[in-house]
Design a protein around this nucleic acid. Sequence first.
DNA 1: CGCCTAGTATAACGGTCGTTATGGTGAAAC
DNA 2: GTTTCACCATAACGACCGTTATACTAGGCG
Lengths: 203, 203
Amino acid sequence: MRTTAASRPARERLLDAAGELFYESGIAATGVDAVLARAHVSPATLYAHFAGKDGLVAAYLERRYRHWQQVWDEVLDEESDPVDRLLSVFDAVVRYRRAEGNRRGCAFLAAATELPPGHPGQDWLAADSRLLTERLHRLAEDAGADDPTEIADGLLAFYDGALARLARQAATSGLDTGDPVTRARRMAAGWLAGRLPRVRSSA
Amino acid sequence: MRTTAASRPARERLLDAAGELFYESGIAATGVDAVLARAHVSPATLYAHFAGKDGLVAAYLERRYRHWQQVWDEVLDEESDPVDRLLSVFDAVVRYRRAEGNRRGCAFLAAATELPPGHPGQDWLAADSRLLTERLHRLAEDAGADDPTEIADGLLAFYDGALARLARQAATSGLDTGDPVTRARRMAAGWLAGRLPRVRSSA
DNA sequence: CGCCTAGTATAACGGTCGTTATGGTGAAAC
DNA sequence: GTTTCACCATAACGACCGTTATACTAGGCG
């Protein structure tokens, strides 16, 4: 193997470039040529590793999904209080976004509006939704909620609200009331307070 | 003028077709040819009425903005209770969406992720955000809120959450807990309850 | 050495994009 | 009745899209 002067292999360079460009400029708006140029990869190599652009898009979403899940896992391991564990989804978003400079909003929300119905990347959007609902449901059970489904669904409403606000901010760029995610966490904490059997006050 | 056998003039036919296709299939994914074919309009006519596709997109967003504002006005005229007037934004969305068959999510949220930064349609996205924040702020003042900015921002969080959920549903298509907008209204009403000086219970 | 692998560079493919040009047509205005 | 205006249909434009083909090259390994 060559890997071109001790750099990373072509497949990872492609994923790096795709992750940067798809996220920054949108999936549809980013041409294959731009990804190839940024990754310093020839067209033949791309199509040897992925099933065309759609395959690259799916791999890009898969990578983001796994990374996001991993960050949430880490945050979750640091929390012991059941309520804090429920609210950890907001802390995970804060940490996830900080790692890439807090620019733009949720890649999955953007992809949900960009990808056509049959696209292979849709599987990872569904996986993201499933991860959110199932994990929140389980954490609500652990917190002793009477109706875990309602708790999970309510928290998801706050979560989605924060993500949509981030997407809106990109266009508005006006005066904002701080970080939408932090604000959503605060509102969710208040909403949760009266709704769980026994609550220790959370940070 | 011809207007082609008693049908509507070409400009309105173009806006009708664009409104249908842009909303249904996305702005970037819809070619000019598709709009022309649906509107039964020749290319020269389009470019005589609009400044290219970008101009048509901006006009499409402007039309949606004005219609949305008008629906909200109507709903607002029917409400007298200050709290109901604050929550009218959710009722307006329900009515607005019902008029077009409840398909897909918010066109402005989708456009916010699709349009590049300098696009002429961005003005209408900003106008939408401004309408929401300013009107909610004024309604919060009318309701006698101590901190109208906080009330308006909180309601906007519920509102954005409902829209993002709609966008997510298009991809997930799983079992849903009823209409996200109605659910957001219920949560917002509960959130509002303890936060305003005097509250009559609202429907 | 010779083979294989993973990669390179360049070029072309057919298709579609947004846009413009050309020439024609029917109805209203003068 | 001629002009004028709004619109039509068709075709072409250059640019870019995603994709494939061709030919070449540098290490790893037997």
